[in-house]
Amino acid sequence: MRQNHENTGRPLDRRRFLTTAALGGATIVGASALGGLDADAAFAEPMPSLDPAITKSAFAEGRITRIKGSVLEVAGSYGDQHLIQLTNVTSIWKLRPTTADAVKVGDGLYARGVDMPDGTIAADAVWVNIVNLYVTIRGIAKDRLHFTHGSHETVGHVVPDTTTASYLGGALTPDLSRVRIGQAAQILGAWRPADDAIDIARVTVGH
């Protein structure tokens, strides 16, 4: 699977190191006698002030026009321009967590990060070609779904080992067989600029 992006020895050693560290010195949270927060009572309380770390975050959206090293030049949909700096701690999603090599000129993106003094955005997270469409399922085949999004007909490809489904709020499962024709669904996926189709990450259906 592409998700396990590096097949050289070193990253695996790194994983092994991290696993050992993670399991050895970890703090265990949850499944304890902590008792739950009375969430609804907390809701009725006045809101605490905003977390300053969140309000500091920057956001950018647009199509990638050029890739120069680890900097993405992005043309925003409102004529704005952004320079997105990818680092080795930037998470990159393109249908699944992936690496910078998967990002191509012409892709669309949403990025969250921090404004740098030089005008670039140091990205914490980048979602490439991600779409989240409200659709009606119009057809089902072995490897794809046909659906309408507004008046637009689109093909969504089922990607082995990646596409999942959630039924009425249930856990994400590789079982897609309960999707029905005529059903309303939310499709989270990666748009394919080459043919305007979508690779499906998850199908969420209601009742």
Partner: peptide, 25 residues
């Protein structure tokens, strides 16, 4: 989440929404 306003991909046809002011960014 949803997209609206000028955008790329399938979002390009989403329009500016019921209030006429919606934009993804």
């Amino acid at each position: 989440w949803f997209c609206c306003g000028s955008s790329w991909g399938p979002c390009g046809s989403a329009g500016t929404g019921a209030c006429g002011t919606c934009q993804s960014n």
